[in-house]
Nucleic acid binder design. Structure first.
Lengths: 141, 141
DNA sequence: GCTTGCCTTAAAGTGCGCTTTAACGCTTAG
DNA sequence: CTAAGCGTTAAAGCGCACTTTAAGGCAAGC
């Protein structure tokens, strides 16, 4: 039960050229070919691509994915290194969470100020000044 | 009370060339020059740059920042449009929050599986297979 | 037999957000 | 007087992650 690249692409919502590119970059070892040289994706490959997509969407670089693949190819003895990579990535995720929370805070603040202006509760001296005022209130925590 | 580009750069932890680049791209209107043509940053400019940095770090594109600046320059009548942009950005922040949560889940799952392998609770058939097993467990929610 | 539709590859192109370079000017300290 | 240290500009370069293009191969249906 193997998938063509088109099927893989459809199931993953990921363009076929991108999948080929990942393989070329060494992120997808062990993909077999049929007698015509066409790639045959197994469910495990789709799962791995999905995980990579998840990690990529949250800031993991391809070079890091590649290091993980290479370590995996070297066997279980590299598990400590892989754990270290994942733990570092996890820290980055926490940083991003804080960044998101801050941005959410700032955007809510700016929205609230716009409402104030709309309801005439705040006099906006000039367009740019209004812009600036927003900062001062939303940035200083 | 104005700042030189060097002072601005130091206070913001943002390279001076980046600040110049932002001005060139129209993200920083109204920056005055002294008699030598040197930029004079006011506190409001620093605050605005800081806010832009916050938004940029969480995925807002420069083109969106530029649209907001242009709208702000057109006065209070554009506040509804600016609100719309911010509300859309807010939705994107929520998407990113979900992506982060998913990634965090997946990484914790993978870490747990590595621990299992290390403690011999799981037999890893091959390096790549181990890699794949992780996916199946961490992805299917 | 020929078009359609899938696949292949290598290589070039794209978009974004900086970052670096090069060439130059002003001002202050030694 | 000159070197250090700040500023300026336009233009080129870079890193990343794709994306597109070009040229071709195989197989099924009309």
């Amino acid at each position: 039960m193997a998938f063509s690249i088109k099927e893989a692409s459809e199931r993953l919502g990921c363009p076929a050229p991108t999948i080929r590119y990942y393989e070329k970059e060494g992120l997808l070892p062990y993909i077999q070919r049929d007698k015509h040289g066409n790639r045959q994706f197994e469910q495990e490959h789709l799962d791995w691509i999905r995980l990579m997509t998840c990690f990529r969407a949250t800031g993991m670089k391809m070079s890091v994915l590649k290091r993980m693949v290479n370590l995996a190819l070297d066997g279980d003895s590299t598990i400590p290194q892989r754990k270290a990579i994942l733990n570092q990535y996890k820290e980055e995720l926490f940083v991003r969470q804080r960044e998101l929370a801050e941005a959410l805070d700032a955007v809510n603040n700016k929205l609230a100020i716009y409402e104030d202006i709309e309801k005439g509760r705040v006099v906006s001296e000039s367009a740019m000044l209004a812009q600036m005022e927003v900062q001062q209130q939303s940035i200083k925590r």
